[in-house]
Design a binder for these strands. Structure first.
Lengths: 256, 256
DNA sequence: GAAATAGTGTCTTTAAGACAGTATGTG
DNA sequence: CACATACTGTCTTAAAGACACTATTTC
């Protein structure tokens, strides 16, 4: 359905500064924009994520991802950083945009668009974050699908009881797992889940936890060493009752 | 910074329906949310995208991606579909969310969050879409980086003149190219860029256009045939001055 | 039959998996 | 010295690249 050519109006001969001064931002629908964060760690064979027990309606008493409403003058990433700092007391962690969720009825209060980020931390930082406030807790992610199929996931507490998730947050965590699995193959994302130094077997266990399947030790070893992303520290494990393994660290390619 | 346990207030004993009835949506900042679409096709060795010449401030006369503001009761994907239909007269095309852009100053009018989708079509549908309205035109994408590095791209017209892009749309198109390159390896996304039937060499040329590099013919052929995503039609090309190639179609795995 | 691309067969190269065997810590 | 895991070397298998050769159409 082709439109007629626009007619020349007063607006066309007006300059851009004049136009902007006249602009009325209320002429289109305005909505609430939230930024939520899926904070993920991998340890003890499980992926874990940080949840906040809701003290308010809606979904009172259920668990939700840490999040907050976007403020007028902050970027999306700044909002995600602010959420991590205020809800999990974390700073300087790997953070990347995941997806934007916008079903009209996903929040029963009002229309809320949620831009979701995911963040990756090692076990120590995750545990420190999860033991802060009373409402904050750690949930273990149970994935019922394989590979990069995708779909919602279940989250359980330390006694394996299902934690009901508020809003569409089960879908969101599921998408974070899917993304993480997909990235692991070609991006050095696994290192974000490790502490400062680690052995090759520890790195392999984390990869296996993320992927939800076992990996071949020989080829994992070869692949990692050939990738050039690992740097031997020259130091070795201690306190293990077998031959100690060499400790490696992530070789940063100069930039962060 | 641990918080004190919440005190029991009137809100806690109130039921969820009562809470929702009392809820005041204006207590957080509300913003404009736009949905933009990067419509991509691959032909004549170039990736092309659909642009709209802006007839209004800001960026009057420059070119922008087709887009529109999200309406109160439509999903993000519905908005993208609406944009494609109204600006490009297209329906039923492959559509997927790309990324959400939210720099505070990306739109000089007011704070606008843009949820961007990308859509893939074959040459015929693209050309039909690009010759509709006068303001609509096709731009050829010039990528100056390799692989999945990413970054903004340049877009030129049919006479190879640079088309200046409005807002942060050069970054957005760049991200669409990056995503497309990444997906090509493991998702049957290349078929979206083909017509109903096609030869293996035509498919290879499209892959090469997307990736920006040449591919090995033998191994491309083997890989495609082994993937199980191709279905021989039994028919062959006609009107070519050499041995005609077999025509294939995309084998749908039952569902769309 | 010349030109041009389609399609086949096979050799080489490279990466992954399998597995045997040696190395080196702790108890 | 027993045990457990680290690490090394080599064989097999599968996929990708290279390349020679045959097939089939139009002009």
């Amino acid at each position: 359905m082709p439109k007629k050519p626009r007619e020349i109006t007063a607006v066309d001969v007006e300059g851009e500064p004049q136009f902007l001064a006249r602009y009325d931002a209320t002429k289109f629908d305005r909505l609430s924009v939230a930024v939520d964060v899926v904070l993920v760690a991998a340890f003890e064979g499980d992926l874990s994520t940080l949840l906040i027990r809701r003290g308010e309606h809606p979904f009172l008493g259920q668990h939700a991802l840490p999040g907050g409403f976007l403020k007028k003058n902050e970027t999306l990433e700044e909002a995600a950083t602010r959420v991590l700092r205020s809800k999990a007391n974390l700073a300087g962690v790997f953070l990347e945009q995941l997806y934007t969720f916008g079903e009209p009825r996903r929040d029963p209060r009002t229309r809320v668009i949620s831009v979701v980020y995911y963040a990756l931390v090692d076990e120590a930082r995750f545990r420190a974050a999860a033991t802060g406030e009373r409402e904050v807790r750690s949930g273990r992610i149970r994935v019922s699908w394989e590979g990069e199929t995708g779909g919602p996931v279940r989250v359980v507490d330390e006694k394996n009881r299902t934690l009901p998730l508020a809003f569409d947050h089960a879908d969101i965590v599921g998408m974070a797992v899917k993304r993480l699995r997909g990235k692991l193959d070609y991006a050095p994302v696994g290192f974000q889940l490790m502490g400062e130094t680690f052995t090759l077997l520890e790195l392999q266990r984390v990869h296996e936890t993320v992927l939800g399947r076992t990996l071949n030790k020989d080829s994992f070893r070869r692949r990692m060493l050939a990738s050039g992303q690992l740097e031997a520290t020259g130091r070795a494990q201690s306190g293990v009752d077998h031959r100690p393994a060499e400790l490696y660290r992530f070789a940063r390619p100069s930039a962060v």
